[in-house]
């Protein structure tokens, strides 16, 4: 009887492990906070993606690719937003790797995000690949 119990427990453990492989943990307070901050900032960034001032880089960040498109009065604000966004993005990739017990996954998570940001960008936005900017 004891053996049966043990086998049941093992099956549960195994099922848990399989399930854990299908999903990454992204519901920690740190990750939620970063995500919410990025969501709030997006409203300010979106017009600059559309104008071509900002672009999505191949390393999962954003960059000011053409400052001349931004009115002079706003330039400093936009630069500040870009720095904040990149800080949050770096922290996000690091936090996801840490929350899943594998800090060494950070680079893989970053490149996965980079592909998805670029893949899902709206048409008209600038994206970087192989060091070159192109318009989607």
């Amino acid at each position: 009887m004891k053996t049966v119990h043990r086998i049941v427990l093992l099956c549960l453990l195994y099922a848990g492990a399989v399930w854990a492989q299908g999903n990454l943990e992204i519901n920690t307070p740190a990750i939620s906070q970063l995500r919410d901050a990025m969501q709030a900032r997006h409203a300010q960034l979106a017009p600059h993606y559309a104008s071509g001032a900002l672009g999505l880089t191949a390393d999962g960040r954003i960059a000011l690719r053409d400052a001349n498109v931004v009115p002079l009065a706003q330039r400093q604000t936009v630069q500040g937003l870009v720095a904040q966004e990149n800080g949050d993005r770096d922290a996000l990739y690091r936090e996801i790797a840490r929350a899943n017990g594998h800090p060494e996954w950070e680079a893989d998570i970053r490149s996965t995000f980079a592909q998805r940001w670029i893949g899902r960008a709206q048409s008209g936005w600038y994206v970087q690949s192989g060091g070159q900017w192109s318009r989607k």
Binding site: G22, L24, I26, L92, H102, D108, T112
Partner: peptide, 22 residues
């Protein structure tokens, strides 16, 4: 098994966060 980077799970996680942010 878990040492290998779970690429499909990471893509799903990325998409969920991108959905929220954008």
């Amino acid at each position: 098994i878990n040492i290998y980077f779970p690429a499909a799970a990471a893509e799903k996680a990325a998409d969920r966060i991108i959905d929220e942010v954008w």
